[in-house]
Design a binder for these strands. Structure first.
Lengths: 337, 337
DNA sequence: CTGAAAGCGCTAACAT
DNA sequence: ATGTTAGCGCTTTCAG
């Protein structure tokens, strides 16, 4: 790796001082037009660009924000990252993306890593294994702005951006009822996550709306991976009196359920209606196409970044704010009996 | 953002010099055990961690590698990023991911951005719009190691990692023939990309293998997005004598074709066999499930990173090397008549 | 065994 | 209008 050209190099070449070069490059009024021109021309020729390390050291800022997602490969997260990145780039920030792989230990590690890297702010969604939230103490102590998205915690201390989980689940439940389902089941996510709790709450509210009883056997829990979800789906299908409608905490879970249902020769939606959550890109490619709750993922990412960048701008530590974005029920084939 | 504790802070607190602290922290033999202990304990207590900006400035290295992908949201790329990230993390490197959004202009911009950031190396896959490769001159001039993956150029100057495109396409074509197809069509990608050219070449070789004539009307070109692919698929389906088998340059293209085929009430695979390329995660969820060429994406990512990191380690500029990884034809329902 | 000093690249007072 | 100096946090000679 060749040395990048520095102010010193330019200064030496022109026989002027480093500060003159520095000033000329920012069009400081003190510098004579001729010198200024001469310097700017040489700088362009030599492809000078300021060393961000030196700048960062001086200004004590890296212009970098860190992102921790449970999993990069999922469409939901990569789309959010997309939104974050575009917003950050607009403001001249770099984004370092790390993945917790849904592991609490790895998440702690990522936090530490990003802090060591001196990121100016963090945007994250907690892992499904995260039950203890004390690793965010360091972030608070160091006064690093942090924004949670989707899966949140300590919301009185940190800003966050979530979707209207309760309303969305309620809407799904009502949709099931309106399309003729009576035994509506829900495959919930890990009990510690807000998204799980809220979606369960919406589910129960929806049942009330429809004057349907809450049947405990129709609420099963699953982790957010395929094998765990398949297990959960089997539990539902093996019930003496199985459900005629199922929605899951996310699309992954529902894809697994769909596979299991098809395997058993049960028809979707005639025998069982199916609704997903998150509207993964491929929801429309499966057969039957999957009714799902569409998340404005890109917007969530860019809004999270906006929230963070606003906090970075303000010297005053702003009070944590909560943004709730609305989802949309996209009705496809899997739920219309 | 609070100031991180520095060596100076520790030194002041203990009444020793900065250099003593610096040495103690790296267990320099000169330092007396008591002082060493004292310092290490305080450092841990104050959660000292070296400032990477200062280190970078001193050592002229950022321990950062830059990645440019055409699109973060596609499973193929995010999985590769995953592999890169894990490998980089093992070696203590940070990864900055940027996206060209399949645009040549944006790609140039990303290169410049990453160079300005002083990344130590770059891993990238050129955008579908990229026809001119002179923007990589800067990279060469600055002696920044760069590794291309999947879509490559200037392979005598830069290392790269690709899949056995020709063999894979040839295999698909033979598979079609063996399963009873006679009019085999191919939806190719942009003509400038090596992946398009090589897959076309494999297609033609496969036709020869099967003693099938090459029919120009069965080779159509498409960009790598849904609408362009839909248009290409229509062209094939509208032929007076349409194909009985189609494979595309990637899964996205084939998903689009699948949708169009279904829309017309044509049966897959009975009327038209369909094979994808890249084995997107959801290939197995569509109906019928999609036969496809599986790419070892994660491994491609980690191998690309290994290649790059090896070059970073070596002071001597290693000759560019080419890695070809093997793919695997995963036979599912869409091609078995 | 420990400290002082220089320098990585840059900016911003503070001279001249 | 331009140069000098100090300092951001760190390592590494070179002195003691």
């Amino acid at each position: 790796m060749k040395k990048h050209v520095s102010l010193k190099d330019l200064a030496n070449e022109l026989g002027v001082s480093i500060s003159t070069v520095s000033r000329a490059l920012k069009n400081h009024p003190d510098i004579s037009p001729e010198v200024c021109d001469k310097i700017q021309i040489l700088a362009k020729e030599r492809k000078y660009s300021p060393n961000p390390l030196a700048m960062g050291l001086l200004k004590r800022q890296t212009r970098t924000i860190g992102v921790i997602v449970p999993d990069i490969v999922t469409h939901f997260y990569s789309s959010i990252i997309n939104g974050i990145e575009d917003e950050a780039e607009k403001k001249g920030y770099y984004v370092v993306v790390t993945s917790s792989n849904e592991s609490y230990e790895k998440e702690k590690h990522c936090i530490q890593n990003l802090m060591n890297l001196r990121v100016e702010g963090i945007i994250t969604c907690i892992s499904q294994d995260t039950n203890d939230y004390s690793h965010f103490d360091t972030v608070l102590e160091n006064e690093i702005p942090l924004v949670f998205f989707d899966r949140v915690c300590r919301t009185s201390e940190f800003s966050s951006i979530v979707v209207n989980n309760i309303e969305a689940s309620r809407q799904i439940t009502n949709h099931f009822f309106q399309t003729g389902s009576k035994r509506i089941a829900h495959i919930a996510g890990p009990a510690n996550l807000n998204i799980s709790k809220e979606r369960i709450e919406g589910y129960k509210l929806g049942l009330e709306d429809c004057n349907l009883p809450f049947d405990e056997s129709l609420l099963v829990y699953s982790n957010l991976d395929l094998s765990s979800a398949t297990f959960a789906a089997k539990k539902l299908l093996d019930l003496p009196y199985p459900p005629d409608a199922v929605f899951g905490v996310n699309d992954t879970v529902v894809f697994a359920a769909m596979k299991e249902i098809k395997k058993r020769g049960i028809r979707i939606p005639q025998d069982i209606s199916l609704v997903g959550f998150t509207d993964d890109f491929h929801a429309s490619f499966v057969e039957p196409s999957l009714t799902s709750i569409e998340h404005p993922t890109y917007e969530m990412g860019s809004k999270a970044a906006q929230l963070l960048l606003r906090q970075l701008g303000n010297e005053a530590v702003a009070a944590p704010s909560q943004i709730v974005v609305n989802t949309k029920l996209i009705i496809r084939e899997s739920s219309v009996k």
